[in-house]
Design a protein around this nucleic acid. Structure first.
Lengths: 171, 171
DNA sequence: TCCCACATGTAAGATGTTACATGATTTA
DNA sequence: TAAATCATGTAACATCTTACATGTGGGA
């Protein structure tokens, strides 16, 4: 959440959720909206963010958050701590099903792989849309690199699934 | 846990942890050992597993678990429920750091990517070792496919990191 | 003799989701 | 005018990790 707020501008919890859904989630994760609101209050209580209620000029009552200097300092400390970011965590339910393939009919297993390919292609389209929206925007260089990585990763995900389909045939 | 037990033989919690660390973790996840023991007791309390204390012939006192018929039934029901296994979950701390690259010195960021490549190559070696151990064993066909997928995935992970390094240069 | 691997657990706490509740505004 | 989207929250619960505690057996 602090990272999302570290980009210029202020935003509501609702907006942060949409942004996380359309970008962060492809390489990290998108928290539940209820958690976002909870974390924003927590950040404010530590002094890492401030919030502002929308005035009467706005049609809707809402609360927009912005990062504070203390928040930026904390975030930079986190980022420049020489420590290892840690290994990626992958939980791939399809692979779990393939690993336990002895419990499933071969055609059903292949059908699951095909569904996975279809879903992955759908996500690929979403990433490309996000990339198109980010294109040319100032100060979004790094987020764009993360999205490009995500794009390539999804392409590779499709290839991996197709190779696995071949392995399943050969069994 | 039930899935691990669904392969022939009986095993202790400790052994299950080692197996999960050397195989499951590459495409799904390896639970903490404390959780494994808790889940095994839980499985036994639902009748999905039975346990047997080692007799006096064994040098060490330990408890080996095996799946029951009820456990197999429950697992098959889970596997053949026509439902979607769900989308893969990826939490990639390195990408999070790249996404927030404006907080880090360029060379430090590239160093993180290089460390990631080195770690990934290490995991690749582990997968290949696991694959060598699984080679030829009866009834391990599907686990082998999952490991081959993991091997290709790690190769792709290295390539993705190297492509990203190129993007970072171009920034 | 000392350390490492084997082996099992308890308790506290962090983390995150789901279900539910509410209400305003915009769009079809 | 109905549905979708915007907008915010509470409470219960599920899930999982960390730190701690304990003891055995084998190898250097």
């Amino acid at each position: 959440m602090l990272g999302l707020l570290s980009f210029p501008g202020e935003r509501t919890g609702y907006e942060l959720k949409k942004w996380a859904d359309s970008s962060l989630r492809f390489f990290y994760w998108s928290p539940a909206i209820s958690q976002i609101y909870a974390e924003l209050r927590r950040l404010e209580s530590c002094g890492y963010a401030t919030s502002r209620r929308s005035g009467p000029e706005e049609p809707r009552a809402k609360r927009a958050y912005a990062i504070t200097d203390a928040g930026r300092t904390a975030l930079s400390r986190w980022a420049s701590a020489g420590q290892d970011p840690g290994a990626p965590v992958l939980k791939h339910p399809l692979l779990l099903r393939v690993w336990l393939g002895h419990l499933t009919q071969p055609e059903q297993l292949r059908a699951l792989v095909h569904e996975h390919v279809a879903r992955t292609r759908g996500e690929l389209k979403e990433v490309r849309d996000a990339l198109a929206r980010a294109d040319g925007v100032e100060a979004w260089g790094h987020p764009q690199i993360a999205l490009r990585w995500s794009e390539r990763r999804l392409i590779s995900e499709v290839e991996l699934a197709e190779a696995m389909l071949g392995d399943l045939e050969g069994l």
